[in-house]
Simulated scan of single mutants.
Amino acid sequence: MTVHQLIARPRTRLLTVLAACLFVLLGGVPGALADTRRDPASTDCISTPAEYKAAWDARQVRCVSPSLFGTTHTRGDTTLYPSGFWYAWAGSNTNLERYLQLRSRYGDQPPKTGIGVLSFVGYPGLDSWDTPTDLAVYTLPAGTRAQVPAFETWFRLLDEKFGHTDAYPLAAQRDLVLAYSRLGPGEDVVGAFQDVTGCKRARLLKGAAPSAAIGCSRDFLDALAAAGPSPYDGASSLACFANFQSGYTGPRDAAALRGVLYQCQDAGFLNTGVGLGYNTYANPFVCKSAAAQTVRQRYTGREFVLPNASFGELPSHADIPLDLGSPNQRGFLQKGYC
């Protein structure tokens, strides 16, 4: 062994020990230096709405208990979803964790946080959205089930509620599910919606309402008409479904079934039918423009449905106002967030 080796070996050992210590201090993950806002107690997951709001206000990034859910709603509402809806849509704890990351990263650019949350949820029309909107974080009453909003789930819930009505034939359910489960490379759920209903993708993304003028099929439009007003217009989901079941006289095909879910339960054209969120805007967590992001990258978080309820019926909840800025501050929806 040379003198150089005798000197170098202790030095190498020392560097190895120092590197190991640094690895432990940084949590052993690549990029840990960039996560400077993670709370030291982040292994103690947030378990109450009040804790979540405190973490939001402090711009902390922490894990969130699966017992917490989040739903965005118009400011001033007294229910999770407008009162006529049978079920409310809800984001999971993983979504809530993502929102804390947005708040931490873009707290100095509030529109990227507020609009980013709405985009992650799956709102269309965000280029001009100006409705004051809050994020409700809450726990569920004992015995309440949160369910994955797959197409099959909806038809099972309808069978449980109304009994076997022949309104939703298995063959049509199959065709609807297959249309969404056989997407090719570069194809997305908006394209699947177009394939099933005929409504032109480009027109939908520009804010056009379903109509024959944008190519929507007769079966789809007749299903909307038979179902009657949406709960957004003061009706109820259950009346909407009952109207379709008794009043629709056309073919009960995939287009008709997609129409009744669209009209009665807010399963819009961005709905994936598999329990994942999706949007055509840039994903806030992918540093590319919307055009450069792949379809896979534009899927967002896990979503559930649960019985709609007033805030007073929930064991606990906290409301967080979202700062949406103004429409002229939203170039990031297309150009990307980072």
Rank of each mutant, 00 (worst) to 15 (best):
L170D: 08
C264I: 01
V3F: 15
G247V: 00
S92K: 02
R302Y: 12
T144F: 15
E97F: 11
L26Q: 10
P30L: 13
R62Y: 04
P149Q: 13
R218Q: 14
P66N: 04
A213K: 10
F285L: 07
L68R: 00
L306I: 01
Y87K: 11
T71H: 14
L126G: 02
L257N: 08
H164P: 11
W56P: 07
G336N: 01
V286M: 06
G84W: 07
Y52S: 09
T36H: 11
V117L: 14
L205D: 04
S42G: 07
Q263S: 07
P110W: 02
C287V: 05
G107A: 04
N279D: 06
G91W: 05
L270P: 05
V274S: 09
N271T: 03
Y262V: 05
A20D: 07
A167C: 11
A213D: 14
L118P: 03
S211G: 15
P169C: 11
K335F: 12
K288D: 08
P82C: 08
A213C: 05
C63L: 12
V190Q: 05
A55L: 03
R62C: 01
W86R: 04
K112P: 03
C240T: 00
L80G: 09
Y262I: 03
P185T: 06
S47L: 03
G91K: 02
P327F: 02
S65R: 01
F285I: 00
T249D: 09
G122N: 00
T144V: 15
E303Y: 08
C63S: 12
G250H: 06
E160P: 11
R38D: 04
G273V: 10
L26E: 10
R98V: 01
D39S: 09
D159I: 02
L224C: 10
T72A: 09
P210S: 03
T139V: 12
P132R: 08
R62S: 01
I7M: 15
G268Q: 07
G207P: 13
P315S: 06
P210N: 02
R105I: 01
A318L: 07
R298P: 01
W86F: 09
L306M: 09
P315L: 08
T48M: 09
Q265C: 06
G228Y: 09
Q5W: 09
G91M: 08
W129V: 02
Y278G: 03
A282I: 06
G125A: 13
G250L: 04
I115P: 10
K161Q: 15
T133Q: 14
C264S: 07
S42D: 12
V295Q: 05
D35F: 14
R302A: 10
P82W: 06
Q329K: 09
D166H: 14
T71W: 04
G191S: 08
N283M: 11
A225D: 11
E313N: 05
S119L: 12
L204W: 06
F332G: 01
S83R: 03
A213H: 08
V137N: 02
L176E: 00
Y106Q: 03
I115T: 01
A291N: 08
R11H: 12
V274W: 04
